[in-house]
Design a protein around this nucleic acid. Structure first.
Lengths: 146, 146
DNA sequence: GGGTAATAGTTGTTTTTGTAACTAACAAGG
DNA sequence: CCTTGTTAGTTACAAAAACAACTATTACCC
């Protein structure tokens, strides 16, 4: 009787996903780290502001599923480095609208270009069709709408 | 002239992979954390020993691509909790052979079962074919041989 | 209005990582 | 042997994450 024993760690999805995520982030991570001294959360906040324009910390947190304390600290760093400015909402003085400064815009454009070509390079291992399917499946797993 | 501006964060592979990895680890993580007070690296070490039998810290590190300091700490915790035993290699007294105790075996079997059914549940969102393709692509991205 | 609850964001403290330097054991060449 | 280099694993210290408690403001509703 053969054991029904076909489960291996190398195939465990959370493990695979973690390893793939780590491996695929490496090169890009060292780019924004070396070039701008940014941390991952800072890059993410910057990227959101560049992509979607003015947002509040809460907006960013919701969209990227980053905890508010991480956002708070990333925003503090980015402000200190003059990459973003903050202004209170006059209707609800609890929240602040964040937006990129020209320097922030410049960094964003650079990083965005890097990210785009890096992404293309990663995806080049697959066919166009496979790539599309991969992204769809990942969005599914990540609970990201469409 | 439309801008060639089709790059969005939500589709950036490192971002997608990270989010998918985090999301998909959540439930399982809280299982081994609540049930055994384990950290991720401890679960991974335990799992490797359960799957492959006796190994050295180095073996585990190579196979799972975990840094030796993480392994060292995980091994210390697991030893302290009597899940594994260590014995010096008599031919090369620098390295130690690690193996599960009966308690470690029991935890391993439980966690392994959990992992298997959790994995199945994650994969159930996809067709069998899609699932196979997904794992293959992830192994590719994670730089894991076949 | 006045009290209670909820929300946006921050700060402080504890865990966990990351990195580098360290010990102990082996290897190899002279 | 004995110096130099390498390897397995540990430890110490700095950086970052997690978690809880906090301030300030707004919302609810009796």
């Amino acid at each position: 009787m053969p054991e029904k024993d076909d489960f291996v760690l190398q195939d465990f999805l959370p493990f695979l996903l973690n390893r793939a995520a780590e491996e695929s982030s490496l090169a890009f991570q060292s780019y924004y780290k070396n070039r701008y001294g940014m941390l991952r959360n800072e890059w993410r906040v910057l990227f959101h502001l560049g992509t979607y324009g003015t947002m509040t910390a809460k907006d960013i947190g919701q969209r990227a599923k980053i905890h508010k304390t991480k956002i708070s600290r990333a925003v503090a760093k980015l402000t200190e480095r003059r990459f973003i400015t903050r202004s209170r909402d006059e209707n609800d003085r609890r929240s602040e609208h964040l937006q990129l400064t020209p320097a922030g815009e410049a960094a964003y454009r650079d990083l965005r270009g890097q990210a785009a070509s890096y992404d293309k390079q990663l995806a080049s291992r697959f066919s166009a069709e496979e790539e599309k399917v991969l992204r769809r499946m990942l969005r599914q797993l990540a609970c990201i709408e469409p």
